[in-house]
Amino acid sequence: MAALLARLFGSLGVLVAVSLVLFALIHANPVSPARVVLGNDASEEDIAEFNAERGLDRPVAAQYLAWAGAALRGEFGRSLVDDTAITRTIAQTMPVTLELVLWAFLVALAVALPLGIVSALYEDRWVDHLARALATIGVSIPGFWLGLMLIAWGAVGLGWFPAGGYVSWEMGAWPHLRAMVLPALALGLYYVAIISRMTRSAMGDVMLAEHVRVSRAMGLGRGRLMVYTLRNALPPVITVAAMSFGYMFGWALIVEQVFTLPGMSRALLNAIFRRDYIMILDIVLIITAIFLLANLIADALHRLVDPRVAR
């Protein structure tokens, strides 16, 4: 428990460090938001006024403290460009991205774990070869291209799924979910490959372990043997799954563009084009926080699975 708390504080430290670095980078950038918003013709006075209104004329440290204080209260500040509340923008776009990633993650786990286990059990048989082929394809196809292929197949060809766009829950659960199928597949396939390969190799290693030989020598049934092996193989799989969950937020931005989903990608791209620094900072920090949270959960699961880590 103490170790877990230490990890939690460590993660908070990382968040603070990342925000500091981002803040510093932003202020080292020569193009000011005032120039972007007001244009090249703006006079020095206009720019000074713009900066004063938004507190950009204060020292960087003061700006950081003001921002951090608000962020702690859940106030992510206002857009430098159009003065909208960033918290609201995030509340609108974040659930879409989160849902996409969760579905993709579930798809990845649901396919990868059985696939990895079966191919370890039937090493070098046809299932294993099929899984390996799938994994090779999975890691080598770029996500956006896979997205286009899926649209051509599932939307244009079969007509089972919409080619893109978001359908809100209010329109009914089925239409909503149907619109998420192709994006989730496009995002998930790469991680099916990664996680199933890791599952297979971890299972393969454990199956050769001395304690598994002992379990067989004691006449344990298939089911028990499976549980004995799998639990030992879990730690590396948990690590890879947690990393995958974090990375998915990065790739989700591209998949959202391909399927025109109104997730965080649009907000982030807009912010980048418009030099809306605070917005960029907030979104990147939220993604960082999710990444750290996934790792914390993985850590807790490790402790649950392996008594040796618990001490």
């Binding site: 372990a209 001395e210 304690h211 004995y228």
Partner: peptide
């Protein structure tokens, strides 16, 4: 067997 250290399932 010989290898008692590795003979029991660690988890």
């Amino acid at each position: 067997f010989q290898d008692a250290m590795a003979g029991l399932n660690p988890v």
